[in-house]
Design a protein around this nucleic acid. Structure first.
Lengths: 244, 244
DNA sequence: GGACAATTTGACGTATCTGTCAAATTTTCG
DNA sequence: CGAAAATTTGACAGATACGTCAAATTGTCC
């Protein structure tokens, strides 16, 4: 019964042997269930016995894997938020791409991540007002960065004559909102895959800013033509279906 | 949490004189503060002393206006949800308007309501998973009706040749999501008014479905799509030829 | 001022939740 | 098998939350 109570053993550094509870199967099960429960009912409203019960454990067994409920929250936030944050800032830093392709890339990446991690996204959205101050600060900073990235792309597109938008901020928020909300309705088991929905979101984002089709590279032209073909075929299928 | 109270006066019947607490100023203050707190932290995570403290009351004074925390929730849900529900179903029932105007109207109405009641909307969205079963059922029914209304308008627009959209459901969800998310970023004190933002949302919704002012016949649309396909293939052939 | 109702409060009881700890049980491995 | 480690459990303590109630305070009207 080595509890290693005093030592902060939850640092992400790769201590190989000492930490008694790390990367355990049950630990990951708890994290996953907790994310779903927190996403559904919120952090404060979710009781520990629910978390434990969801993975078939007694409430006290939980404390073998996490020192406290707050530590569970921090572990969850670190796991979920950091990946999202990194992904966002990475994409937005590039300046070598023209605004239309840039918007396409950023929406596909952001929306794609949400569609592939709807539970995590809902968890973060739901618990962002209950986070401890330090984490709330970094989270808000990341959100602001994300918004600024979108606004920057839209503004560049306007300035360079690609987009026709009156207010870059409203347009960015509308695109972001469209993507965000997909976490509340998308189900991977549905008729459309995450990649297909992501492509649709990209298409709608481009329509929102009325991006002009001034293709740049050959590769990009091919991609656009293929996308256009796909859309045409889908529309034709729809027309054909409504025929009978 | 549901405990049976003794024969108190918590019947919602409109007895004009007997109920000692109804339509009081403090009662409305409590409702308003509670909506904001529930929207921010969720129902289960918000403690009663916070609600009472937000309006300058002691915790026990709260029980003079509401028999229990659950009754506060139900009162809040009834007040917030019913107005939203009625508004939605009213607009969507009309069939005398052409799809483009219909979409304009429905988005302006729905988005406008959200922009004018962001706190209520966030409250409903946040607590919808903590509602008592009966209320959850009606709420889900209303949500489904709303979605069906949007889908119906989009589908009509497609069939009548106004809109160019591959999947009516995804388009409807995207428009709804764009509107919904405004509750999380819009502030009435900002540079743009609710009416202005609402107009922008309408504009973006119309762009999303690529609404055209004049409908085209189905036969004509098929011809156009085929022509579009032919052109795409020709362009792709050209790109392929110049590749080698 | 005084009677009466409206409103607020402090003390109390109960239920629930978090977290601790020693003991019990299971698993691992020599 | 048997010992040590890993894992789980039940009992317990402290804190907090909800709700009740009688008493106290405030406001109103004559």
């Amino acid at each position: 019964m080595r509890k290693r109570s005093t030592g902060k053993d939850n640092v992400p550094s790769a201590a190989s042997d000492a930490p008694p509870n790390k990367n355990s199967f049950q630990r990951n099960e708890i994290l996953q269930s907790a994310a779903a429960l927190f996403a559904q009912k919120g952090f404060g409203a979710t009781k520990l016995h629910e978390v434990a019960g969801a993975v078939g454990l007694s409430r006290t067994a939980f404390y073998y894997y996490f020192p406290s409920k707050d530590e569970l929250l921090t572990a969850l936030v670190e796991e979920s938020t950091f990946t999202l944050q990194r992904r966002l800032t990475d994409v937005a830093q590039r300046t070598d791409i023209a605004p239309p392709d840039m918007l396409r890339t950023i929406v596909a990446d952001y929306g794609g991540w949400i569609l592939n991690h709807p539970t995590e996204f809902r968890f973060v959205s739901r618990t962002e007002n209950e986070l401890p101050p330090a984490m709330a600060a970094t989270h808000n900073r990341a959100k602001r960065q994300l918004l600024d990235s979108f606004i920057g792309v839209v503004r560049q597109g306007i300035d360079q004559g690609y987009f026709k938008v009156a207010d870059a901020r409203i347009a960015a928020l509308s695109v972001i909102g469209m993507c965000n909300w997909s976490a509340w309705w998308f189900r991977p088991t549905g008729a459309l895959s995450a990649a297909e929905v992501s492509g649709t979101l990209v298409e709608y984002a481009m329509r929102m800013v009325q991006a002009e089709t001034r293709p740049r590279s050959k590769r990009e032209r091919v991609r656009m033509e293929v996308e256009s073909l796909r859309e045409s075929i889908a529309r034709l299928e729809g027309l054909l279906a409504s025929e009978s």
